[in-house]
Design a protein around this nucleic acid. Structure first.
Length: 429
DNA sequence: TCTGGGGTCCTAGGACCC
DNA sequence: TCTGGGGTCCTAGGACCC
């Protein structure tokens, strides 16, 4: 059964351009949180040799004439645009297998179901309806669909859709595909493969499957099979996450425990909310902190601590308390902290919690759960953090204080939330 | 001065059992 | 001096992805 892949071109940049069409054909980049580094580039920016992940301050030096337009990341906007693209796709194709914010696989019964003309029309429809240009690859396996999609994106003649439906086309495509461009082969294995004289995907196929399995492990052996046309990579995961993480780098480094506790409380509360959203509970709460690894002139320290809960929980109070305890165990005085985060693990469905025979806190836990549900509904109706724990406030004793979340974050090039906020709609003269 | 965030899966090795 | 064998489970760390 063949697979298709729809991949949005330069997705974040394309989202920004929908509302700033004057930036079409100009170099544009979108930055990570804190305006840290480049995470999305227009073709023009790529042509200027701006690499993925380039720190923004280096870009400023690189781009002396200021011809590159930079945006802070606007995830609300990108999430909404992604939803629009995926809706059209699923309305046209039926069942889709979402893979990331900007790409989705789908399975078709046979190649006749989506011939080139129809695939071209689909790409065109998505572009016209949403403003987002996409590329489509169709092939016998997901890994080959990825290969096809790269050609659809790179070569104009394909009109945004490329189909690999014969062995001849497959081998031709693999000969023209550099080994580092193969989905599933990462930077750590490339040097070893190159040493063996493997330069293209076709070279890689000359290796023996058993040897690959032994030397590189199961995932690479699966990639080998997929390139041979044998479908074996399954990415259909359940709707529920197995771990939930909230973490940030700080614009300004933090050195006192109280302030770090406030950040951790906000991360933990955010994690708990995501957890409840998927109707799950977590049995363990991990907290990590680290200094600025780029500042070799400062003391380096990073550590993590996992706090187990007696009974899996999802209410904010318990999760924030556990995180606070964990932080206290690893906090070291005198360190300038640059990054911190909370990860929830051992996640199970909330309706299947294994209770403890010796649990004397069930009544309190029931109350906390009801309270968290109430907080969620108030915040959903009135905006994030309308109600929060005092531990999340930067100055708990001051009535005007705000939750600290995202406060220590640099976002100097933020666009409007054009599609999700009435106050930020596009203005037309 | 300024360097992101959030996931998944696999594996080797240790702990533990009989 | 000589010091079992075989199995399971758990976990930290590493690889990959976008």
């Amino acid at each position: 059964m063949p697979y298709g892949l729809v991949d949005c071109n330069n997705f974040f940049v394309s989202c920004e351009r929908v509302f700033r069409p004057e930036l079409n054909n100009k170099p544009v980049v979108v930055l990570s949180n804190n305006d840290g580094c480049v995470v999305s580039r227009s073709n023009e920016a790529k042509a200027m040799n701006i690499p993925m992940g380039m720190p923004f301050y280096q870009l400023k030096e690189h781009d002396k004439n200021n011809i590159v337009t930079a945006f802070s990341s606007n995830y609300v906007l990108y999430g909404d645009m992604s939803h629009r693209v995926m809706s059209i796709l699923s309305n046209t194709i039926g069942n889709i297998i979402p893979y990331s914010i900007d790409e989705s696989f789908f399975a078709i019964d046979n190649f006749q179901q989506l011939p080139h003309t129809k695939a071209v029309a689909l790409a065109k429809n998505i572009h016209q309806s949403t403003g987002i240009p996409v590329s489509i690859g169709i092939a016998p396996t997901k890994t080959l669909a990825k290969v096809a999609c790269k050609f659809a994106k790179k070569l104009k003649g394909y009109k945004s859709a490329c189909i690999i439906n014969t062995d001849e086309k497959r081998m031709k495509a693999l000969q023209l595909t550099a080994i580092e461009d193969v989905w599933g082969i990462g930077r750590r294995t490339i040097p070893t493969l190159k040493q063996k004289g493997i330069v293209t995907a076709a070279d890689f196929l000359r290796l023996n499957e058993k040897d690959i399995r032994r030397e590189f492990g199961l995932p690479l052996a699966q990639t080998w099979k997929e390139l041979n046309g044998i479908d074996c990579i399954d990415i259909e995961k359940g709707d529920n996450k197995q771990s939930i993480c909230t973490s940030r780098s700080f614009a300004q480094m933090v050195d006192n425990e109280e302030q770090l506790q406030t950040h951790i409380a906000n991360f933990a509360a955010q994690c708990a909310m995501k957890l409840r959203k998927q109707h799950s509970a977590a049995q363990s709460v991990m907290v990590f902190i680290s200094s600025n690894r780029f500042r070799t002139d400062l003391q380096q320290y990073s550590n993590a601590c996992t706090q187990m809960l007696e009974v899996a929980a999802s209410n904010t109070y318990e999760i924030v308390s556990a995180a606070s305890l964990a932080l206290h165990k690893i906090f070291k005085k005198g360190v300038q902290y640059k990054k911190a985060g909370v990860v929830l693990c051992d996640i199970s469905p909330a309706n299947a919690i294994q209770t403890s025979m010796f649990d004397e806190n069930q009544n309190r836990r029931d109350k906390d759960n009801r309270l968290s549900a109430l907080i969620d509904s108030i915040n959903k109706a009135n905006g994030r953090d309308t109600i929060c724990l005092a531990a999340q406030l930067s100055e708990p004793n001051n009535d005007n204080t705000q939750p600290l979340f995202n406060n220590n974050l640099r976002r100097e090039h933020l666009s409007e939330r054009y599609t999700t906020n009435w106050n930020e709609l596009l203005k037309v003269k």
